[in-house]
């Protein structure tokens, strides 16, 4: 079962929007962006571990989509194709020399602290009490920090499988790894994550 927002879009809806865009309807592309922007941004955020990088990557993803949508042949689901672009974009960014070499200058307030103070980043939280909400944020912070320490392929697999709930076959299509590699690397990545979160969770 696919529980993520991307896969809730029916292929037919995507198909109609894409066809309209290819026929010259510029607003159809806006519609595609609006439908997928949150999912794409959230996936970028979890893969990159930083809001600013996530926003850059998400923007690059949609620019790539804009440029290459003409070549989309409807042989796969649009969402799978979009996921593959997200993963590739983030992978390229993570592997870039610039990203690896730079000393990240992060405001303490930037990512984990008190997102309420960041205009426009408020998120509805079903947590019943402020304390529970705080605990959830702290847990998210620790989990994200542990994910960030995983090798990039392990990070991709854990997020695609455990956060986005993609099937193994979909992960193969998105990442380009073969099925055996996905299974073994996912198992290893989960073990690494479990080690990193030992004593925390």
């Amino acid at each position: 079962m696919i529980g993520n927002a991307l896969y809730e879009q029916t292929p037919e809806e995507d198909r109609l929007r894409i066809r309209a865009f290819l026929e010259g309807d510029r607003t159809a592309f806006d519609s595609i962006v609006l439908c997928h922007q949150d999912s794409v941004y959230n996936l970028c955020l979890r893969l990159m571990g930083d809001r600013e990088d996530a926003a850059d990557c998400a923007q690059e993803v949609f620019l790539r989509v804009f440029r290459s949508l003409k070549g989309f042949r409807f042989r796969s689901r649009f969402s799978t194709w979009l996921y593959a672009i997200v993963v590739n974009t983030c992978r390229n960014r993570l592997n870039s020399a610039e990203f690896r070499n730079r000393s990240r200058k992060v405001s303490i307030q930037s990512f984990f602290e008190n997102s309420e103070s960041r205009e426009g980043h408020d998120v509805e939280d079903p947590a019943p009490t402020p304390l529970a909400r705080l605990a959830q944020k702290e847990r998210d912070r620790l989990v994200q920090a542990a994910i960030n320490e995983l090798p990039s392929e392990g990070r991709e697999l854990v997020i695609l499988r455990d956060m986005e709930e993609l099937s193994y076959e979909e992960i193969v299509a998105v990442t380009g790894y073969n099925l055996g590699t996905v299974k073994s690397r996912l198992a290893r990545a989960r073990q690494q994550l479990r080690e990193k979160l030992k004593g925390v969770m």
Partner: peptide, 8 residues
């Protein structure tokens, strides 16, 4: 993990 929406 919290689902964070795209920035405004």
């Amino acid at each position: 993990l919290e689902r964070v929406p795209a920035p405004p």
